[in-house]
Computed example of a mutant assay.
Amino acid sequence: MSHHLKIGRGSYRYSCPNCGGPNTEKRLEHGLPCPRCLPEKDASDLGDLISIGRVLEREETISENFRKLVELEREARELIDFFNQVVGSRRVGGPEDMG
């Protein structure tokens, strides 16, 4: 992820995945909440939903819906890890294989 989140082509109302407020195209592209929820100083090196959730919790700006999304991500990762242990190899064809 880029260390500098420059303004993209647009700003979109109701698009922050945390508060539902306005957010920029660049932040959305990286899965980041708006600057009000997650200041840029905290956003530059976050790579996944769980990391973003930790920072939002620390900043005390996490919404209940985002908290549920983070918990769902944690549960999905636990299930994938369990599958890998039982089968003895990484599963193929999941979302992380795309892209």
Rank of each mutant, 00 (worst) to 15 (best):
M1K: 04
H3I: 07
K6D: 12
I7D: 06
R9V: 10
R9E: 09
R9P: 03
G10L: 05
G10K: 04
G10Y: 07
G10M: 03
G10Q: 07
S11H: 11
Y12W: 12
Y12T: 12
Y12C: 08
R13K: 09
R13G: 10
R13D: 11
R13S: 11
Y14V: 14
Y14S: 14
S15T: 13
C16G: 09
P17W: 09
N18L: 06
C19D: 07
C19T: 10
C19G: 13
C19Y: 08
G21V: 04
P22K: 08
N23F: 11
N23Y: 10
E25H: 07
K26A: 15
K26Q: 14
E29G: 09
E29Q: 11
H30C: 10
H30V: 06
G31C: 08
G31K: 10
L32E: 04
L32K: 11
L32F: 05
C34L: 07
C34Y: 05
R36N: 14
L38C: 07
P39T: 13
E40A: 15
K41H: 12
K41P: 06
D42K: 13
S44C: 09
S44F: 09
S44N: 03
S44D: 12
D45W: 04
L46M: 10
G47C: 08
G47R: 11
D48W: 01
D48T: 04
L49Y: 01
L49P: 00
L49Q: 13
I50M: 07
S51P: 01
I52V: 15
I52K: 06
I52R: 06
R54Q: 13
V55T: 15
L56I: 06
L56R: 08
R58E: 02
E59R: 15
E60S: 15
T61Q: 06
F66S: 00
R67N: 08
L69T: 13
V70D: 04
V70K: 05
E71H: 01
L72A: 09
L72F: 04
E73H: 08
R74M: 03
A76D: 06
A76M: 08
A76W: 05
R77N: 14
E78Q: 02
L79H: 04
I80P: 00
F83P: 00
F83Q: 05
F83L: 09
Q85E: 14
V86F: 12
V87K: 12
S89A: 08
R90H: 05
R90E: 13
R90W: 01
R91G: 06
V92F: 02
V92I: 10
P95A: 13
P95W: 02
E96I: 02
E96L: 11
E96D: 01
D97E: 05
M98P: 00
M98Y: 03
G99C: 01
